[in-house]
Simulated assay, not measured.
Amino acid sequence: MFELPSPILEITEASYHAGGRMILENCNLKLYPSEVLAIVGCSGSGKTSLLNILAGRVSPASCTVFRLNGQDMLAGGDPVVARLWRKATGYVTQDAAETLDLNMSACANIARRLFELGLTHAGDALQRAQDRAERLGLPAGRLSEPVRSFSGGMRQRVQIAAAMVHDPEILFLDEPTSGLDSIAQALFLETLMQVRQEGGTAMILVTHDLRIARLIADRVLVMDAGWIVAEAVTDRLMTEPVHPVAKALVEAMI
């Protein structure tokens, strides 16, 4: 009988409130090594709030289990926990300006995470940054240019390189193709596919578009009004949606 490996990320009964209202309620999730998990749902369903909790960017109001690589992540003030977040994860946002310094070069932006993790030799950091950028298809001739001169699609690819330069175990992506034109979106998705083919990095991708989830995700969670209402292997969800929200998302894709 096939046995699943131990999850690298696990959260149980997570809830989150903001402004006096419930944002998330009783959310349970497991992420396995090298898995690509998509979180889908309509605007306001709680997708990004859940992602931000999983990535350690905000704390849940309540939660019974929260583990990363077996480490209890509920000890939020522990410096060991904080370092584990930085070392084991990377994060890609909708807007590259949230994580990149647009006045710095692409290479310097990518290398910055290495300095944050304690690497002190600038030459080594910049070389690793260049290697990661080139592996993801960024043109070597433009790595010294400031990010502000790049298109939206290029900025997103720089974000991935910066999030991946330290070889994290988990990459979090929050609507990374939002606002990109169809050509830039296709190039970005090619980059994600390359990351997946390289193996070793699990991903959690938030999107409202099941077509994107279908391209790269192994498994899909569907959210509605702060609850996880459906969970299935991607192909199963596409062909046999049960929950009304899942059905509506599949119909919108057709």
Results as ranks from 00 to 15, higher is better:
Val80Arg: 14
Ser34Met: 07
Val195Ile: 12
Thr120Gln: 14
Leu84Gly: 01
Ser105Thr: 13
Ala133Val: 01
Pro139Gly: 10
Leu4Asn: 12
Glu10Tyr: 08
Gln127Val: 11
Arg157Gln: 11
Ala225Asp: 09
Gly226Ile: 03
Leu4Glu: 12
Ala61Gln: 12
Ala140Asp: 13
Cys107Gly: 03
Glu35His: 10
Gly141Val: 05
Arg86His: 07
Thr93Trp: 04
Leu24Thr: 03
Leu50Glu: 06
Ser144Pro: 02
Gly200Ser: 12
Glu231Thr: 11
Val81Cys: 05
Arg142Cys: 11
Ala184Arg: 01
Leu102Tyr: 11
Arg128Gly: 00
Ala55His: 07
Ala125Cys: 13
Pro139Asn: 12
Ala75Asp: 15
Gln194Tyr: 12
His166Lys: 12
Met164Arg: 02
Val36Asp: 06
Gln185Asn: 10
Leu68Val: 03
Ile228Phe: 01
Thr48Val: 11
Asn26Glu: 15
Thr177Trp: 03
Met164Glu: 01
Thr89Asp: 02
Gly179Cys: 09
Arg211Thr: 14
Thr201Phe: 02
Asp95Ser: 13
Arg57Glu: 10
Ser15Lys: 05
His243Trp: 06
Ala82Arg: 11
Leu117Glu: 11
Ala217Ser: 08
Ser178Tyr: 09
His166Leu: 12
Tyr32Asn: 08
Gln197Phe: 10
Ile170Phe: 09
Ala186Met: 13
Asn69Gly: 09
Asp72Phe: 09
Glu198Thr: 12
Ser43Asp: 13
Ser43Lys: 07
Thr201Trp: 03
Met164Gln: 03
Ser105Trp: 05
Leu100Tyr: 06
Ala88Gly: 08
Arg128Ile: 01
Arg219Leu: 05
Thr207Ser: 13
Leu205Val: 11
Glu116Phe: 13
Ala186Thr: 15
Met22Ile: 14
Ser62Leu: 10
Glu240Pro: 08
Met104Pro: 05
Glu25Arg: 08
Glu251Pro: 03
Leu143Phe: 08
Leu205Gly: 02
Gly153Met: 07
Leu192Phe: 03
Leu114Asn: 03
Glu198Val: 13
Leu189Met: 14
Val195Asn: 00
Pro60Asp: 03
Ala106Thr: 06
Asp124Leu: 12
Asp224Glu: 15
Arg83Leu: 14
Thr64Pro: 07
Ala75Gln: 15
Ala248Asp: 10
Leu9Asn: 01
Ser144Phe: 10
Cys107Val: 14
Glu25Trp: 04
Ser34Tyr: 01
Met223Leu: 13
Ala108Leu: 10
Gly56Met: 05
Glu240Ala: 12
His121Tyr: 04
Phe188Arg: 04
Ile8Ser: 07
Arg142Asp: 14
Leu171Gly: 04
Tyr32Ile: 06
Arg83Ala: 14
Asp78Gly: 11
Gln127Glu: 15
Ile11Ser: 03
Ile53Thr: 04
His208Gln: 14
Asn109Tyr: 07
Ala61Cys: 13
Asp101Gln: 14
Asn69His: 10
Ala133His: 00
Arg219Gly: 05
Leu74Ala: 08
Glu134Phe: 09
Leu29Gln: 07
Asn103Asp: 15
Gly41Asn: 06
Asp167Tyr: 10
Ala213Glu: 02
Ser6Gly: 09
Ser43Val: 13
Val206Tyr: 02
Arg219Asp: 08
Val220His: 00
Ile204Pro: 00
Ile216Ala: 07
Pro146Asp: 04
